[in-house]
Simulated assay, not measured.
Amino acid sequence: MTALVAVPALVWVTVLVVVGGLALLRGQDVLQRLIALDLLAVLVVALLALLSYLRGVPHYLDAAVALALLSLVATVATARYLATGGPLE
């Protein structure tokens, strides 16, 4: 029963990663690319969580949590940099 739901979810998330990559490449300004990159990070976290569930390996879930934290810090730092115009202002 789990494979009946998890495998289509895995395929769907993989398709969304490809679409997110296209959105990243086609972004017209920095903010659109930042949002697309954040979307890709969320999708990769979901992909890692699904793989962790399907294979029963907890290391993938640890990697997903670490990636989520790094993505949050990077998004906040980039947004702050774009808002203030410099790293220390």
Score class of each variant (00 low, 15 high):
residue 1 M to V: 01
residue 2 T to N: 10
residue 3 A to N: 05
residue 3 A to E: 07
residue 3 A to G: 03
residue 5 V to D: 03
residue 6 A to V: 00
residue 6 A to P: 00
residue 7 V to M: 13
residue 8 P to K: 09
residue 9 A to T: 05
residue 9 A to H: 07
residue 10 L to W: 11
residue 11 V to P: 04
residue 12 W to I: 09
residue 12 W to L: 15
residue 13 V to M: 02
residue 15 V to Y: 06
residue 17 V to S: 10
residue 17 V to T: 14
residue 18 V to Q: 04
residue 19 V to Q: 07
residue 19 V to H: 06
residue 19 V to K: 05
residue 20 G to C: 07
residue 20 G to V: 04
residue 20 G to R: 01
residue 20 G to D: 04
residue 21 G to A: 08
residue 21 G to P: 02
residue 22 L to Y: 09
residue 23 A to D: 01
residue 23 A to R: 14
residue 26 R to M: 08
residue 27 G to R: 01
residue 28 Q to T: 12
residue 28 Q to C: 00
residue 29 D to L: 03
residue 29 D to I: 02
residue 30 V to M: 09
residue 33 R to C: 04
residue 33 R to V: 10
residue 33 R to H: 01
residue 33 R to K: 12
residue 34 L to Y: 03
residue 35 I to T: 07
residue 35 I to K: 05
residue 36 A to R: 03
residue 37 L to V: 12
residue 37 L to H: 05
residue 37 L to K: 00
residue 39 L to G: 11
residue 41 A to P: 01
residue 42 V to G: 13
residue 43 L to V: 06
residue 44 V to L: 11
residue 44 V to H: 04
residue 45 V to L: 04
residue 45 V to S: 01
residue 45 V to C: 03
residue 45 V to G: 00
residue 46 A to V: 12
residue 50 L to C: 07
residue 50 L to S: 09
residue 50 L to V: 10
residue 53 Y to D: 05
residue 53 Y to C: 00
residue 54 L to A: 14
residue 55 R to W: 12
residue 56 G to E: 11
residue 57 V to W: 14
residue 58 P to K: 11
residue 59 H to V: 13
residue 60 Y to F: 13
residue 61 L to I: 12
residue 61 L to A: 14
residue 62 D to Q: 14
residue 62 D to S: 14
residue 62 D to V: 12
residue 62 D to R: 13
residue 63 A to D: 12
residue 64 A to G: 13
residue 64 A to V: 05
residue 65 V to R: 06
residue 67 L to C: 02
residue 68 A to P: 09
residue 69 L to P: 03
residue 69 L to C: 02
residue 70 L to A: 11
residue 75 T to Y: 08
residue 75 T to W: 04
residue 76 V to N: 07
residue 76 V to F: 09
residue 77 A to R: 14
residue 77 A to D: 10
residue 78 T to K: 02
residue 78 T to L: 15
residue 81 Y to A: 09
residue 82 L to K: 06
residue 83 A to S: 15
residue 83 A to F: 13
residue 84 T to S: 09
residue 84 T to R: 14
residue 85 G to D: 09
residue 85 G to H: 06
residue 86 G to M: 04
residue 87 P to G: 09
residue 87 P to V: 15
residue 87 P to W: 13
residue 88 L to I: 11
residue 89 E to W: 03
